[in-house]
C-alpha cells in the first residue's frame, strides 16, 4: 500500500492535500468541515488588519475555464478572531494562518498578532491580483518587497512561514529565491491569475461586483504546474503546489513538478468538500498501479537529472 503522509516544515500531514486560503475557512467550524472532507491541512481565509466587507456579489463565477473571483478579502480583521482561532485542536489537522497587508508596517502588525493565535504555520500573501491596495496591485510582488516582508514576518513568527506568490509576474523565480533567502520555510505557488473580467452582454455590465477577478481552477493548472516546476529548480524549501488541482492525477502532476504538498481551492466547487478524500484515493490508486511506495519517490520526477 502506498504512503500518502508527508512532513511539511516539521508538520505531520496525513496526506498532502491542503485547503487553499479563501475557500470556506472563515471559521474554526468551516475549517473542520474541510478536514472532515479529507484535507491533510487547512488554510484560513486571509486576515487583514481592518474589517473588510468585501465586494458586492456576484463575487465568484464559474465558466468553462474554471473559476473567477473578486471576493475582496472580506474578513473580520485580525483583532476580532481571538475566540475563533485560539484553540484549533478540534479541527483535527494542522491549521495554516494567512495574512494579507498593504505594506511592510501592516505585515509587522499582522505577524505579531498572528503569533498570539494558534496556527501551525503562517502564510504570507503577497500575490492577490485583483484587490486594490493589496498583493500585486500594491507592488508587493518584487524581490525587494518579498524579501523585506518575509524577513519581518519570520522575525515575529514562532511557526513556519510560507510565502504565497503570484503567477502573474515575470521573474517569479527571483521572488521565490528572495523569500528563501529571507528565511521562508516554504513557498505556496500560486495565487490566482489574471485578473480577468466577464461581461454580461444583455445588461452590458461586468458581472463580478468587483468587476475584475482572479482566475483559478482549470485554466490556472498548466500555469501553476509551470510555476512550481521553475521554482523547484531554484529553491530548496518545499513548495505547496496550488492551482487547478481537482483530481489525484492533477495532484501527482504537481508533485512531479516538484511540489511537496498540493493546495486545493476551486476543486471544492467541482467535486464538493470531500474533494480532498477523492484526490487522495485517486493518488493512491495511481501509485498502487505504478508501484510507487511514497510521494518522495516521485517528487520533482519531471525534472531532468
Amino acid at each position: 500500500m502506498s504512503e500518502l503522509s508527508i512532513t511539511l516544515c516539521g508538520m505531520k500531514l496525513p496526506n498532502p492535500t491542503i485547503l487553499a486560503s479563501g475557500i470556506v475557512g472563515i471559521s474554526r467550524a468551516s475549517l473542520t468541515l474541510a478536514a472532515q472532507g479529507g484535507a491533510g491541512a487547512v488554510t484560513i481565509k486571509s486576515l487583514s488588519i481592518e474589517v473588510r466587507k468585501g465586494h458586492p456579489a456576484p463575487i465568484i463565477l464559474t465558466y468553462p475555464g474554471g473559476m473567477i473571483n473578486s471576493v475582496g478579502y472580506s474578513n473580520p480583521g485580525i483583532d476580532n478572531v481571538g475566540d475563533e482561532f485560539s484553540d484549533l485542536t478540534s479541527v483535527g489537522v494542522p491549521v495554516i494562518g494567512s495574512i494579507t497587508g498593504r505594506n511592510e508596517d501592516d505585515y509587522k502588525i499582522l505577524a505579531e498578532k498572528a503569533a498570539a493565535l494558534n496556527f501551525s504555520a503562517l502564510e504570507v500573501v503577497l500575490s492577490c491580483p485583483h484587490t486594490p491596495g493589496y498583493g500585486t496591485m500594491a507592488g508587493l510582488s518584487t524581490p525587494e518587497k518579498t524579501e523585506a516582508v518575509t524577513r519581518l514576518v519570520k522575525d515575529r513568527s514562532r511557526v513556519p512561514v510560507f510565502v504565497k506568490l503570484s503567477p502573474n509576474v515575470m521573474g517569479l523565480v527571483d521572488l521565490a529565491k528572495a523569500a528563501e533567502a529571507a528565511g521562508a520555510d516554504a513557498i505556496t505557488a500560486v495565487n490566482t491569475a489574471g485578473p480577468g473580467m466577464i461581461i454580461d452582454i444583455v445588461s452590458r455590465k461586468p458581472i463580478l461586483g468587483g468587476k475584475i477577478g482572479g482566475i483559478s481552477g482549470r485554466a490556472l493548472r498548466p500555469i501553476a504546474v509551470r510555476c512550481v516546476y521553475e521554482i523547484a529548480q531554484a529553491v530548496k524549501i518545499p513548495i505547496i503546489g496550488t492551482g487547478g488541482v481537482a483530481t489525484g492525477q492533477d495532484a501527482i502532476e504537481m508533485i512531479m513538478a516538484g511540489a511537496t504538498a498540493v493546495g486545493i481551492g476551486s476543486g471544492v466547487y467541482d467535486r464538493g468538500i470531500t474533494v480532498f478524500r477523492q484526490v487522495c484515493q485517486e493518488m493512491q490508486a495511481f501509485m498502487d498501479t505504478e508501484n510507487i511506495k511514497s510521494l518522495k519517490e516521485i517528487r520533482g520526477a519531471a525534472h531532468e537529472v
Binding site: 475557500i23 470556506v24 456576484p58 465568484i60
Partner: peptide
Amino acid sequence: KCGFGVCGACSLDDSGK
C-alpha cells in the same frame, strides 16, 4: 455571497455546514 459552497460566508457553528 456565492450560494454554491465556496466563499464560506454561510458556514454554521459548530458543524461548519
